[in-house]
Amino acid sequence: MLFTNDDIQEIIRIMDASFQDELHLETSHFRISLRKATGERSGWTQEIETLRKPNLIYHKAKQPEFAEKAEAQAEQDIAANPAPSAAGLLDILPPLLGTFYRSPKPGAPPFVEIGSKVEADTIVGIVETMKLMNPVAAQVHGIVAEICVADGQSVEADRVLMRVWQETA
């Protein structure tokens, strides 16, 4: 069953009328806590957890295509960080997790290639998170030695995107 907003308002009305200030209810489908606000706050709060498991059905018609895509995606996604850097190599990390892009838009040349010189504020790529494009600045200066992530790959925030030879003066 699903709780409606009206259900919750009604329960709270009953609790208010009977001077109750807390209710916890748990079934195999949901867990709900209603609490009267305390201190300077007024009104009530709700905390709901849906415990029911999704009822997944197989999509036969398209399954092979999905399976293939999903596998490729998973393989790409779980690609582990490359081996630790050799001495003198600095890591470039994304500002946050998301999808990494090497060029400003599809079809455009990449921001940098192996051998490109970068300064701290050089943009080396874009990470798309929640439909927002976030530029990735090198943060270090030197020469791009390795590009560790493919265009369009999903990255965690600790994923090394590129490695840079530190310039020695």
Partner: peptide, 23 residues
């Protein structure tokens, strides 16, 4: 999508069908 197979709407719906990867 695969990223949403265990989402709250997936738990609320009578059935959930996967239509592809996260993107």
């Amino acid at each position: 999508s695969e990223a949403d197979l265990n989402s709250i709407p997936a738990r609320m719906a009578d059935q959930t069908i996967c239509i592809g990867p996260a993107k």
